[in-house]
Amino acid sequence: MNEIDVYGIIHIFGQEIWITQTIVTTWVLMAILIIIAFLARLQLKKFSEKPSGVQNVIELVIESMDNFVISAMGEKYSYFANWFFGVFVFILISNLSGLLGFRPPTADYATTACLALSTFVLIHFMGILKQKGSYFKGYIEPIPIMLPMNIISEIATPISLSFRLFGNILGGSIIMGMVYSLPAIFRIAIPGVLHIYFDVFAGCIQTVIFVMLSMTFIKDKIGD
């Protein structure tokens, strides 16, 4: 339940690349998402002024994501909805994949660390782009002696962001594994209820929180 299966090791340019369960699950989920996106793209041609059928669903999803980003970052930065929609859908489908018997990719620290690092890059890229000189001045405020503290707090951001998602999902999957190893009488209805809590509820909440915290951090760095 806590071990990651390794299916093979590829040697390329003198480096070892381990094909783990996480990579396989991630690629399966990516294939599903790409197929859905492709089908939605084909539907785009049939869109009309008066929405009906699939168009309703697509518009609802895209509009609610747009509103979510606008409420957190403001009208001016609504273009972040494109990036955060991808992140949101990927994390959500990863967390929910535990229901189908996969090992959730987000229960591997590599996945969450990558997601948090992309947020980290985005925070500082947008900070330098929008604040220019005062971005670097922010590190020696309020007094220059605070410089090490400010740098540590910047490094702590992606660490806490990734550990939060990782710890929640891994903790849930370990508890589920323990419940499934109980005697048969305990496996009748209890795992269903626990799946609703650990996979559906915690998975959705952690997705929203990861995206919301990323947006809040980027907004803080951009200023105004």
């Binding site: 806590n2 550990f163 939060r164 929640n168 903790g171 909440i205 929203v208 929180i209 919301m212 915290l213």
Partner: peptide
């Protein structure tokens, strides 16, 4: 509230990671 809960949760998650 959810945002505050998430931030408050991180110390617990650090403990969980150490335990794991």
């Amino acid at each position: 509230m959810l945002l505050g809960c998430a931030v408050a949760e991180s110390t617990g998650i650090y403990g969980l990671v150490i335990a794991l």
